[in-house]
Design a protein around this nucleic acid. Structure first.
Lengths: 351, 351
DNA sequence: TTGTAGGCGTTATCAC
DNA sequence: GTGATAACGCCTACAA
């Protein structure tokens, strides 16, 4: 049987109140008795029963992470960033991942009710203001990741997709490309929309006269392949293709290889995300890197902040900059990888 | 304020005892009153306070996953497998990842004390029988993953590294290779040792006269590169290299490419793990695939089983088979990827 | 400084 | 079938 506070009290010949005070550091105990109590606790390997404690303190010292059905690097790096930061705050991490439909995510969010002091939520298309209002217990601190929810109530932290795409277009223009095509992502995907918006803005800025070529894609490798085939069929073939994610860029590379086109000699290719494969394809892929672990860390910092000041309005929007990673696939490359950061974290609070 | 069981009792005009009975399905309540109670609960959006409940039931309905400092696919797929299965058992998942030293992992394990009903622990070199005995609360069900702990007390689930390597060697022999070299992993790594053992066993079995060439590696890409350089310097160059993981195999490919050797024409290369990159390198890499999500799922099933029967001896050893994935890097390949499963899950109980 | 006692929200054990 | 009521382990006024 594991020891309770009563056992420690008996062992140290004091009351349970003193044990509680001594162990929780509140003061009001003689150094000598505090010492005796700590020794007794150690001897008995006493660990406070967390359920009993949180029944009265109303705190679980646990935060929840709710994620859609993700695979690979993004998932692991995000959890890693959140977990590390949570631990440094003395918080545990309850993970609920692989949520697909809206009902599924809603159930998971409700199931966290009472088990967590705060939530980090990575958005899926169906997560909107109404969804949150319906399924989030009032007053539970939450940080929304990668979301376009603007309910004027919650803290939102986003990847700076816009600035990342914008900077990559600028790079392509700098090294001499003009006819630049863009392969977009799913219409209901927030990242995809932001990236396309960044592309259009950059084109308008740097190449005002140039027609804007945007092809459809769905973030899958084969959709990149298909888009590249379409490009090949154009009368005036683009000098560069910028895919809204690396996976599609890899599909483009494949299509160009099959068509006998040299990359970057005949056509340049760029991606977004810097997935591990980007380094290994031939030619290595220039891309926009997202520092995912840092995203998780920042989200957790934000959440810890919210948890510290209950009642304060959480409404705020934060943005995490990206890095431009220059490799071989765009030309003008001289060995290794050149990395440029678009900007530091940017904060747009609306308090 | 959120509603408690008392509020529901008042609303339904019954006692709290009846509310508890009605909502927990135990019976002993008239269908009519049960219905009335459920309606009252729904009206008040009543959610039982989990801390209060687990204070008396001694169950948290949460399991913990303790993982070393991992990156990438392995981490995410494992969590995914565990989470999905846990959810289907109505269990929450508390994740504690990125543990480095022994003290770090020990602290994390102790911190889970009282917050979880069971633990899935992915082994690191320092996790042994003594470590578990010192940091694991007695009686807490645990499943050890990827571990050579044989304390005759705990359930252990391992990847069948031995059979995987063995089968790959058989494949290499089948397609005509004889002088096969092996690049090993870190000496203190369980997987690495098992894989090397499988290699030696297979060589002894299939090519009894052949000298066994084993080179040192550390699972890093550059160690594969270095090993490949050593191979190139040998008087009688091997016909095939089998690296203990894909990362090193990629390093080998790089070295051979630089040396102007054709793969698989001049030399065959095989890896282990089937990391995503394996498909994308040129030539695509033949390897041994580990179904990681399935590993997580099986671990969780095992754990749920243990949690259901308290007191029963948990001691058992389970093994999950691997798949041989034949791509281009070994020769004798005809498009696509051929996949062969070494075996189904194998169970060696010592009850 | 220290001890006593009430209560957090739930389930379980009794009576009725 | 239903309702009091005693735990569960802890924290925290309030008394001493």
């Amino acid at each position: 049987m594991t020891a309770t506070i009563k056992d420690v009290a008996r062992e140290a010949k004091v009351s349970v109140a003193s044990v509680s005070r001594a162990l929780n550091g509140g003061g009001g105990v003689t150094p000598a008795t505090a010492q005796r109590i700590r020794e007794a606790a150690a001897r008995l390997r006493y660990v406070p029963h967390s359920a009993a404690r949180s029944l009265i303190t109303r705190r679980t010292h646990t935060i929840g992470a709710l994620l859609p059905d993700l695979h690979g690097e993004f998932f692991s790096e995000l959890i890693r960033g959140i977990d590390l930061e949570a631990r440094s705050h003395g918080l545990h991490l309850l993970v609920s991942s692989s949520h697909d439909g809206e009902e599924d995510a809603a159930a998971a969010l409700r199931a966290m009710q009472g088990r967590v002091d705060g939530v980090v939520l990575l958005s899926s298309p169906h997560v909107d203001a109404a969804f949150l209002k319906a399924n989030l217990p009032d007053g539970l601190p939450i940080v929304l990741l990668n979301s376009d929810v603007k309910n004027g109530a919650d803290a939102v932290l986003n990847i700076d997709n816009f600035a990342g795409t914008y900077a990559m277009v600028r790079h392509l223009v700098d090294i001499g490309h003009q006819r630049i095509a863009f392969v977009g992502g799913p219409k209901d995907n927030y990242d995809a929309r932001q990236r396309e918006a960044g592309f259009r803005a950059a084109m308008a800025k740097f190449l005002p006269g140039e027609p804007v070529r945007v092809l459809a894609g769905d973030f899958g490798e084969s959709s990149g392949y298909v888009a590249a085939r379409e490009l090949l069929a154009m009368k005036s073939r683009p000098q560069a293709v910028f895919a809204a994610n690396d996976t599609m860029a890899v599909g483009c590379l494949q299509a160009f290889k099959e068509a006998g086109l040299a990359v970057p000699g005949d056509i340049a290719v760029a991606g977004f995300d810097d997935i591990p494969i980007a380094r290994y394809v031939t030619p290595s892929l220039s891309t926009v890197r997202v520092r995912i672990a840092e995203l998780g860390k920042n989200a957790m910092e934000l959440l810890a902040d919210l948890m510290d000041r209950p009642g304060l309005s959480a409404a705020s929007v934060h943005t995490l900059g990206c890095d431009i990673v220059v490799r071989e696939s765009c030309g003008a490359h001289r060995g290794g990888a050149t990395i440029t950061t678009t900007k530091k974290i940017r904060r747009t609070s609306n308090r």
